[in-house]
Design a protein around this nucleic acid. Structure first.
Lengths: 234, 234
DNA sequence: CGAGAAGTTGAGAATCATCAAGCGTTGTGG
DNA sequence: CCACAACGCTTGATGATTCTCAACTTCTCG
């Protein structure tokens, strides 16, 4: 099976943004096979040698870091059009685990060849840098979340972020399925799963969100937004 | 005043890592003026157009993000040999503030020219990517800190990180001056300044660290390390 | 259909925040 | 050069948020 960025409906979100048709075709040649990853299976693990980055064609992933004592920190949830593996560039070894949350498919982009091509194709170079920078900005947002928001604010920010990303892909921003468990959400938000569950219940009681297990319907967007702008409690 | 990467004692830490002498000289030509920034002054502010990245020649900075309601989240403390401004690449606008913690000096690297040269100099391209990736990995470490560690663990991890960075620059890993206030440390670690202060006092009582205002002497390195490997409390 | 995983809810406990007072250091102007 | 003000830091008492432990319900999947 061949991948073809030029044919892909994600090219407005993914690496090809801003590239000419000819250049995207050069990128096509570079992108190796696609790879399917089944639910719960790792795309890569911390410690493995770094060789490629991955663009998510379809599905959902989480990335996490483990401490020796078993503590897990989920560092992100990635969906179609987003990139995985950037952490490996610095040491040439992956520093986190990437695990599929549902049956998924990624485009494998051999890293040495990406560097090669991006020396020739300015648009690719530029977009790749933007993707890395966007990841840094995203991480700062998560720090803000973890460092200065209380539980309900964190969950509201999380839902609003998901909503926006679904919207950017042409899905409903108001109604969607969570691919991750309460425990995984909790790990990402620095909360225990019970706290996440209680916050969901509270949102439901207040009419902000209709929650039915993993099915979410946002009923009061401005209410959720207002929640985040409350004065700091910590 | 001219900057010259080839003359700089930080070239083992900074962008020139792994580049040939000739290539570093090309980088010299690119690096514009140095810029001095006085204590408490911003190098750049969130919202300003992005034009250059900065390598810290001398001094200390903090980067922070502000929420509308006035909450501040410090996203990092940067010292000599480290890079500032990478967040601006994604949107071509700076997304955080960079403020000098003491009188400092940076090398200004015009971004468009950096992209230009890194298309020609493979070593520069590679090192620049590593620098960005390292920032992502660092951010994941901070998430781990904020999301799954308790107050004393966070402070211990913070001190160990500083120790290691001083060491890499040829300074004592055991004795150093903090350039930031308790409030800034607290913001970075997701804690209130009182909590930071209490944790310092506790470390002092336990003989782990001698604290005298901003002067720090690590007395029991393994004790500090052990502290982080305690079972999770949250 | 049953077993295990995931989610919800309650009660009590722990950690950290808040509020408040006081001390030490630094820097400036008389 | 000293005095005083401002700022940063420390410490104590109290309170709020979130965690922990536990029981129970609901959903999922073989």
């Amino acid at each position: 099976m061949q991948s073809a960025c030029s044919q892909c409906n994600l090219h407005e979100l993914c690496l090809p943004v801003g590239m000419s048709i000819e250049d995207v075709e050069r990128l096509d040649a570079l992108v190796g096979a696609r790879r399917k990853v089944r639910r719960q299976q790792p795309l890569y693990r911390a410690g493995e040698p770094f060789e490629a980055i991955y663009a998510i064609k379809l599905g959902w992933f989480k990335t996490d870091v483990l401490l020796e004592d078993g503590r897990e920190q989920v560092t992100g949830f990635q969906m179609s059009g987003e990139m995985l593996g950037l952490d490996g560039i610095s040491t040439e070894v992956h520093t986190c685990n990437a695990v599929a949350l549902e049956d998924s498919e990624v485009c494998v982009i051999p890293y040495d060849r990406l560097e090669e091509l991006s020396r020739e194709v300015e648009g690719l170079q530029h977009q790749f840098h933007k993707v890395m920078s966007r990841e840094i900005v995203r991480d700062h947002g998560v720090m803000m979340l973890l460092g200065s928001m209380r539980a309900e604010e964190r969950l509201a920010a999380f839902l609003l972020n998901l909503s926006q990303r679904f919207n950017a892909r042409g899905f409903s921003p108001a109604e969607f399925h969570l691919r991750m468990t309460r425990d995984e959400i909790g790990s990402y938000l620095g909360l225990k799963l019970e706290t996440v569950s209680r916050a969901f219940s509270r949102f439901q009681d207040e009419g902000l969100v209709a929650v039915q297990q993993k099915h979410i319907r946002i009923q009061n967007l401005t209410g959720l937004r207002r929640l985040i702008q409350q004065p700091a409690a910590r």
